[in-house]
Nucleic acid binder design. Structure first.
Length: 164
DNA sequence: CGGTTTTGACCTGCGC
DNA sequence: GCGCAGGTCAAAACCG
C-alpha cells in the first residue's frame, strides 16, 4: 500500500463532502462502475447469496454527502434479552470491479483476521482502522460469482480526519 | 524499531 | 445440547 489508489466510498464522515468530490471520479478511473450497488437491509443476504441482483445504484455522488450515509441494518435488539443496544453501527457495502481488494481510502487499515466463508471459495478479510479512538471496521470479500468483483463492507464511521 | 501482517485458536450466536 | 458459521484476538514473523 504505497500507491495512491482510488478508494471506495467511506462509511460516513464529517468530510463526506470531500470524498464525494474525489472518490467517485478516481474510482471510475481505475475501476469500472459496472454493477456497483448500495445495500443496507439485505446486505448480509446480498453478500452471501445474490451478490448481483439487488441493491441500489450509486451513480449519485450526492448521496454520499447530501443523503448522509446512515445505513443501519441491525438496530432492533435491545428488549430481546436485556442486551444493551450499543451504538448503531452503520453498515455500508459496495461491490466494485477491481483486481485490488483493499483500496487506499485515505485511512490506515490493520488487518485483524481472515476467514473462509462457506458460500465462497474465497476468504474474507477483516480490517480495522489503526487510528486510536476510531473503531471503524472494514470487511473485504471477493464475489463468489464474479471473482473480478470485490465486495467491501464498511462498519462504523471515522472520527478523525483522513490522512493525505 | 514500529507498525503491520499472518495463521490458528477461541468465543459467540443461531439452528437443529 | 451440540454443531456450524462467523467474527475477533493474540503471538510470531516480516517490512520499511
Amino acid at each position: 500500500m504505497t500507491d495512491k489508489i482510488p478508494k471506495p466510498p467511506p462509511p460516513d464522515t464529517p468530510d463526506s463532502d470531500d470524498f464525494t468530490n474525489q472518490w467517485p471520479f478516481e474510482l471510475s478511473e481505475y475501476l469500472k462502475f459496472d454493477d456497483n450497488q448500495w445495500m443496507h437491509d439485505g446486505l448480509e443476504s446480498f453478500a452471501s447469496e445474490n451478490v448481483s441482483n439487488q441493491v441500489h445504484q450509486v451513480s449519485n455522488a450526492g448521496e454520499f454527502g447530501g443523503g448522509s450515509s446512515h445505513f443501519e441494518g441491525s438496530s432492533s435488539k435491545d428488549t430481546s434479552s436485556g442486551r444493551e443496544n450499543r451504538e448503531v453501527r452503520e453498515r455500508v457495502a459496495f461491490k466494485i470491479m477491481s483486481e485490488i481488494e483493499v483500496l487506499d481510502d485515505g485511512y490506515r487499515w490493520r488487518k485483524y483476521g481472515k476467514k473462509m466463508v462457506k458460500n465462497s471459495p474465497n476468504p474474507r478479510n477483516y480490517y480495522r482502522c489503526s487510528v486510536d479512538g476510531c473503531n471503524v471496521k472494514k470487511r473485504v470479500e471477493r464475489d463468489k460469482d464474479d471473482p473480478r468483483y470485490v465486495i467491501t463492507t464498511y462498519e462504523g464511521n471515522h472520527t478523525h480526519p483522513s490522512s493525505s
